[in-house]
Design a protein around this nucleic acid. Sequence first.
DNA 1: CAGAAAAAGTGCGTGCACGCAAGTTTGCGT
DNA 2: ACGCAAACTTGCGTGCACGCACTTTTTCTG
Lengths: 209, 209
Amino acid sequence: MREQKKQATREALSAAALRLALERGPDNVRVDDIAEAAGVSPRTYNNYFSSREQAIVAAVTGERGARVAAAVADRPADVGLAAAVIEAIVDQYTAPGEPGRDALLLITASPALREAFVDTTGAIEHPLTDAIAGRLGDTDPHTARVLAASVAAAVRLALGRWLQTTAASFTAGGLVVPSGSLPDLLRATLAPLAPALDAAEQQALRRRR
Amino acid sequence: MREQKKQATREALSAAALRLALERGPDNVRVDDIAEAAGVSPRTYNNYFSSREQAIVAAVTGERGARVAAAVADRPADVGLAAAVIEAIVDQYTAPGEPGRDALLLITASPALREAFVDTTGAIEHPLTDAIAGRLGDTDPHTARVLAASVAAAVRLALGRWLQTTAASFTAGGLVVPSGSLPDLLRATLAPLAPALDAAEQQALRRRR
DNA sequence: CAGAAAAAGTGCGTGCACGCAAGTTTGCGT
DNA sequence: ACGCAAACTTGCGTGCACGCACTTTTTCTG
């Protein structure tokens, strides 16, 4: 029940942060406002988030880590590790595009928010490590960590490029082509890691018998 | 000449930061002290570094990015990409251990400094991208970026684990084995990425003819 | 060589992150 | 049901990062 309450205030805080940012623009939101809107003290806000940007972005990226991990775990056992990971990520990063269309617009508009959004990639690292370790049979958690970290790094790269090009296409007024959809960009960015993922899977199989 | 002066003040700042941190302990160093010791205004210090930890750590990690890139480029052309990258990194992360032995002790002692030190890994990403792209023949800069980011992420993991275990071995008073030397740890952490590096190299070769 | 343009340094003000030391709530054992 | 211990919240104080406007220095150009 303690956990429930913590999660509740966390969501209240990030929801308030996003709402206020949408209403007034990101630069006209003081920390005190967010805290007040969520019904906690400013100091408490700071126990949950260490920057306004983090709070705002968390409203969009909240449970991505857990969702990605679940998606990886749910792929059928007979598809390769690389395919499982890549498709799980593509799914999870494309599906939630709907809920906050204007939120994404807000994020792309502000460099600080863009950076915070891209940095949330680090949050998928630990859940993804567990998911990969599960598929590899828990023989070598070390390898799983490395692969998860690499995948996270690649996703960070893809998101960065995507935000960059979409932002550019705004300012350039359409002269710049959006450079491909996010799913395509993700697939292309993750492709070079596929050999490493599949090699690890083969080695795990070999080790198991 | 402009660049020279910038680099000079940058080094003056980080050197002063490290010296003061060693003299008084990291928590007894104010930003104003660093600025004064380097002969610039506090505001200027802030144009170079956005945290004390960054300034201190930069004294140790300064040119690592460029050195790693050069080391990768200097490996003979007939060794595989994976071997070239891994050995270059191992070299560059082991050689500079001598200059600041006490500096590393200082860093391991403070969590904030540990984090800053580990985060410097990101700085090798761009130089390493260029080095890898050079070896791949510049056909696909995108792949080079992904690989460099993954390598950087793996190095970050290795450094994190290394600092963690060495710090633990301090507090535990020797009960915990240092868990292997840094070179071994780096090799073990980078190993899972070797298939990806070599696969990219093969593909580059195939594309070239 | 003068004078403009660009770039780096500086002073100031604001909002913030975070340590610390209370106070308050929650959950558990008896 | 009671009370205690651990976890969470809060107020306060300090140092800091960073935007902005301005001065000083460096570089470029006619």
